[in-house]
Every structure is written in C-alpha cells, then in structure tokens.
Computed example of a mutant assay.
Amino acid sequence: MKVSTKGRYALRMMLDLALHNTGEYIALKDISARQEVSVKYLEQIVTMLSKVGYLKSVRGPQGGYKLAKKPEEYTVGDILRITEGSLAPVSCLEDEPNQCGRYEECSTIAFWEGFYRCITEYVDRFTLEDLAEQQRKKISSNYVI
C-alpha cells in the first residue's frame, strides 16, 4: 500500500486547518502558500472532504474553509480512506465479507488480514489533534533567544 500525493496533501491541509484554527475561515491560497501545494490541487481535495462533511466553506473575499468538527474527532485513517479509498494491502480484502473464491484455501490470507489490521489500527490511533500537538511541540522546541 502506498499513500498517494492526494492522501498526503489532504492530511497536511487538514492539519494546517487544525493548527491555524481561530474560528475564522481560511483561504486556500494561505494554506497553499504554507504547504507549498497548488491551489488547484487543494481545490480537488477540499471538494472530496466537503462532500463528506469534513469541511465547512464560505465563498467570497472573506471566504475559505474550516474544519466542520473538532480536530480530535478526525482520525488519520478517516482522512486517508476518503482520499485513498480502501487501505487494504491486497485487493481481496477490499470486500466485506471477502468475495475471493480461494479465501478458504488461501495460504497467505491470515498474513494479509493481520497486515491490514496493523495498518488500520495504526492510522485510526492518531487524530488531527494528536498531529497538531506533535507539531506544536516541534515548533516550541525550536525556539531560540
């Protein structure tokens, strides 16, 4: 499994919104400048995240985007599944229940199921708030007088 640029940028954008949350809407051009991702690419990502209710938006000169929920209510896994689709390491695990005709006699299925469980547990363990807190600690430890 390889997370695409879209998934990586979506997570960075959502983290940016969490870190710069003042209650006001944030313009995509500001996120674009901070994250060094084109506005055009971010527009594709916000469309996906807005459709599922993860972002609120307002048009116009004072418009922009903000999180629809608190940062601790979004897991990394939630965001990646929206932008990436299934996080399954092999295609036969994408269906629930498993539709593979060889499922019962497959000698590697237990390995793949365990691997998938590790991926899912890991990405669902971390919230946007966890990542934001890590970033804040990183920034505060770089303070020099």
Rank of each mutant, 00 (worst) to 15 (best):
G7M: 03
V3S: 00
L11P: 00
L28A: 05
Y9Q: 05
P71T: 13
Q62H: 11
K29M: 07
V90I: 15
E121V: 09
S86V: 13
L93D: 11
K40D: 06
K56G: 00
L67I: 15
R117N: 10
E72W: 15
H20A: 04
N21Y: 09
N21G: 03
F126I: 07
G63R: 09
T47A: 05
S32V: 09
A68T: 12
Y65L: 12
C100I: 02
Q44N: 12
I82V: 15
Y116C: 01
E96I: 13
A88R: 09
A88N: 09
V37C: 04
V90L: 09
L15I: 04
E24H: 06
I82W: 13
A110I: 07
E72G: 12
I145T: 12
V58K: 14
P71K: 08
V39E: 07
N142V: 07
G63L: 10
K29L: 06
I139H: 08
E121W: 01
P71R: 09
R117P: 00
D124Y: 06
E24Y: 03
G85M: 14
T75C: 11
V52W: 06
V52Q: 06
A33F: 07
A88D: 10
K2A: 08
S91R: 15
E133M: 11
N142W: 12
L28F: 07
L55Q: 02
L28S: 04
K29D: 03
Y143P: 00
E121F: 01
K29G: 00
Q44M: 04
D16S: 08
T120E: 09
K2N: 05
S141C: 12
M14N: 00
G63F: 10
L17P: 02
N142M: 15
P97T: 07
L67Y: 09
E133I: 15
I45Y: 01
N142P: 02
Q35N: 13
P89V: 12
E94Q: 14
K69I: 11
G53I: 09
G101I: 01
K2W: 03
E36M: 09
R136P: 08
L49E: 01
F111K: 01
A27G: 06
P97Y: 09
R59N: 10
I139L: 12
K138D: 11
E43V: 14
R125S: 11
A110D: 13
T47Y: 03
G114I: 05
L17T: 07
E121C: 02
I139P: 02
R59M: 06
